[in-house]
Structures are given as C-alpha cells and as structure tokens.
C-alpha cells in the first residue's frame, strides 16, 4: 500500500463491497473518533500557543531590545548640566541612533500607573530619563557605561536587553515546545491508530483467513482496514479542530501588548495552519494502519 494519488482516490471513492467484508465495530470506532478529536483539539491549542509565543519573541526581540534608558540622578542644581552632558556623549557614541530626554509630561505618564495622576513630578527628586534608540548594529554597553561613569557621575545605563533577553529566550523556548507538543500529538495519534488497527486485525483474523482463501490480495484486505481508520481519524480530527478553533476564537480579545494570554490565537495566514490538522491526522492514520496491516498480513501463511 503506497501513498500514491491513485490510492487516495480509491480511498475517497470507497468500495462498498470491500467495506462490508470487515464486520462493523461500534465501540473501537467511537474510541478512535474520540481520541482523534481530542488530539486535534489539543493540537490546535499547541499550535496557537506556539505561534503566539513566536510572535511575542519576535516583537520583544526586535522593538524593545533596540531601546534602552539612561537614568540620571543628580542634586537639583546639577540635573540640567548632567543631562546635557549625557546627551552630548550619547550623540557621539557609535551605535546610538538617537537620544532624547523625556519631558516632564512623559515622565509623569510613566509614573502615573503607580502614583496616580496628581503626582507633582517637578517637585520630587525623580531621576531624569533619557531614551536611547540603537541603530541596527547596536552599541557596546560596557564601553558606554565606562564613559558615562567618567563624565556623568549620576548616570546609570539601563540596558533593557539585560532583563529582556531571558524573556525573549523563554518565549522562543515556548514556541519550540509548542511545536514539539504538536509533533508528540501526531505521534500519539499514530500510536493510537496502530494499537486500534492491530486490535481490529487480530479480532478479524477469521475474516482475513477467509478472504485469503478466496483469493484476496494483501492490498485488498489492508484497504478495507486502512480506509476505515483513515476516515475515522479524518472525521474525529475535523470535529476536534473545529471545536479547537471555536475555543480559540472565544478567547477574550486584547492587543498583543496587553499580554501574552490575550494574544493567544492565529493571525492572518496562520489560520491555515490548524486547517492542516485533519488531513495530517488522516495521513498519520493511513500510514499507521497500512504499516500495521502489512506487518500482520505478512506474518500469515
């Protein structure tokens, strides 16, 4: 039994007589359907998780890591001078695209979530923040830190990359784990179908013997089983995928920045990926049953 277009056509078209030679089995059929559906449902979530983590890793990695902050804490009188010195120094640093001191209003906006809107920033010893945007190549943080130390004693370089890197790595790892889960799910479907097919082949040993006595080739016998399990996996996985997609759609919406959990879902062409789950499950079932049938039939006289 080969994975040829002709085989698939024969499978799709079906052979009523060939289907009837194997007695129907209600219970295993329902179990196979159920497991295929459950696995497809899980696969949709694993894929959604993986893709969302991938997006997050990409966006954190790109936008955020290219911005860093210089924080200047200085006595009231020296603040302006030190800020100007730091800006001058930053502008001369290679790898810095631009540097800009945040205005009082911007700083207030940053602090607002913690202290409320009425905080008089000007009257408090709040450090001055300078936003540094890197160029594509980036600057050398260690060198910049040394020079700042020498020329602007109150300045501290806050290189976001330092604390973001582990987060980006974690998101990338989550992405990988999602794909590994999807692969494991596919393997589980294969294992489950192999077990079910072996059970069906064993339970129908007499049917196989009779078919063989009247001149059935292995392909004919195998096809009766392969067709069943492929259709069951396809049907179950289609139902599971549909439920999984509905569940993903029902996730509360939120912008990507609002958080990781609300970003769970598919974007744009990624919607096509879960649609691949049912045909893939069918292909896995097809191969698993064909291999099981070949092994069992090959062992007979």
């Amino acid at each position: 039994m080969k994975l040829s277009p002709a085989t698939f056509r024969a499978l799709a078209k079906g052979d009523k007589a060939a289907d009837r030679v194997v007695p129907p089995t209600g219970f295993t059929a329902r179990l196979t359907l159920f497991v295929a559906a459950a696995m497809a449902f899980l696969a949709v979530f694993a894929l959604a998780l993986s893709l969302a983590a991938g997006r997050l890793a990409a966006s954190w990695g790109d936008e955020l890591a290219r911005a860093s902050t210089v924080r200047i804490s200085a006595p009231e009188g020296q603040m302006a001078a030190q800020t100007a010195a730091a800006l001058r120094l930053l502008e001369q640093t290679t790898g810095v695209a631009s540097a800009r001191a945040l205005s009082e209003a911007e700083q207030q906006a940053l602090l607002e979530p913690w202290f409320g809107p009425d905080l008089p920033v000007a009257s408090l010893p709040v450090p001055q923040l300078i936003e540094v945007i890197e160029t594509e190549q980036g600057y050398d943080p260690a060198g910049l830190r040394l020079r700042l130390q020498a020329e602007v004693p109150g300045a501290v370089l806050d290189d976001h990359a330092r604390w973001r890197k582990p987060l980006v790595a974690a998101a990338a790892r989550l992405n990988l784990l999602g794909w590994v889960s999807a692969l494991l799910i596919a393997a589980t479907v294969g294992a489950m179908v192999t077990l079910a097919a072996n059970a069906a082949l064993a339970a129908n040993a007499q049917v196989i013997a009779v078919l063989r006595l009247v001149g059935a080739t292995d392909i004919y016998i195998a096809r009766a089983f392969v067709r069943r399990f492929t259709l069951r996996a396809l049907t179950g996985a289609a139902a599971g995928t549909a439920l999984g997609i509905v569940a993903v759609l029902l996730m509360p919406a939120g912008s990507e920045t609002a958080g990781f959990l609300t970003g769970l879902g598919f974007r744009d062409w990624h919607w096509l990926i879960p649609l691949l789950v049912p045909p893939l499950a069918a292909a896995v079932a097809f191969i698993a049953t064909a291999v099981a049938a070949r092994r069992v039939l090959g062992g007979l006289s």
């Binding site: 009837r20 030679v21 007695p23 049917v207 078919l211």
Partner: peptide
Amino acid sequence: RRRVGVVHQDCQFLDHLPVAENVALPLAV
C-alpha cells in the same frame, strides 16, 4: 487461488454477511 476453487473441510465464511454474498465473495475480492 482465483484459478483454484477450494471446498474446505471446515467451511469458513464471513459470518456477518448472508450466504449469497459469501458465495459471491471470490468475485468481489
């Protein structure tokens, strides 16, 4: 086997199909 018809001592059939279909089974196969 399609050129040799065999009547077995322990006649085995597909027990879930009626006699007529069992008799026609070699043709179907």
